[in-house]
């Protein structure tokens, strides 16, 4: 891919930024704890993080590492185009569980909002004050590479200075994220 300024991958409890291992935890660490420990490692003070669902936490953390060198002006009109496979299935399942059982019925708005996969984009946009184009695409897991290239092609079509593109997924306790910062 052309014009990639920075790249980050998080999977198997390893954070790899620009090809270098930045942070890791033992494979046995629960995902939620891994995310919290990475948050602490980054010395963040953003209480909203703890309200997010796993998909949003994952995207939020990756974006944090990718965008921390950019100025407010550079971020303002950025595009955020992300793809994922299993949508918001983790939160979908949790929300379904709150309405399936007549004797234990407790749907909540704070959970329902995360049953949209593009909420992760909203969380990143709020954190970094990004007002540009945004879109969440769905794709089969075996089409991961190709969708990133499709999103990349879309970026080149317009002369926007910076774009965040990539793939993230959270399904059955397995997660992964591959984000790229593109500069035109």
């Amino acid at each position: 891919m052309h014009n990639v300024q920075r790249a980050i991958t998080i999977r198997n409890h390893q954070v790899i930024l620009q090809g270098e291992l930045l942070f890791q935890r033992d494979q046995s660490t629960p995902n939620a704890r891994f995310f919290s420990e990475l948050y602490k490692e980054l010395k963040l003070t953003y209480p909203k993080f703890f309200k997010m669902d796993p998909l949003a936490k994952l995207g939020f953390l990756a974006a944090e590492l990718l965008l921390n060198s950019l100025s407010a002006e550079e971020k303002e009109e950025m595009k955020i185009l992300l793809a994922c496979s299993h949508s918001s299935i983790e939160s979908d399942t949790m929300f379904q569980n709150t309405i399936s059982d007549e004797s234990n019925y407790y749907p909540s708005p704070s959970l329902f909002v995360y049953t949209l996969p593009n909420i992760v984009i909203g969380e990143i946009a709020i954190r970094h004050r990004i007002y540009g184009e945004n879109g969440l695409y769905l794709t089969p897991p075996n089409n991961k590479k190709s969708i990133i290239e499709t999103l990349h092609k879309q970026i080149k079509w317009e002369d926007n200075r910076y774009a965040l593109i990539g793939y993230l997924d959270y399904y059955k306790n397995k997660y992964e994220v591959d984000f790229y910062l593109i500069h035109s």
Binding site: I80, V113, I119, I121, G122, Y131, E133, G135
Partner: peptide, 21 residues
């Protein structure tokens, strides 16, 4: 054009920022 309010995940912006842009 597509934009984001960069304001709230479930509430519209009070200034209509994203739609205005």
């Amino acid at each position: 054009a597509v934009t984001n309010d960069a304001n709230h995940i479930s509430g519209p912006s009070r200034t209509g920022e994203g739609l205005y842009r």
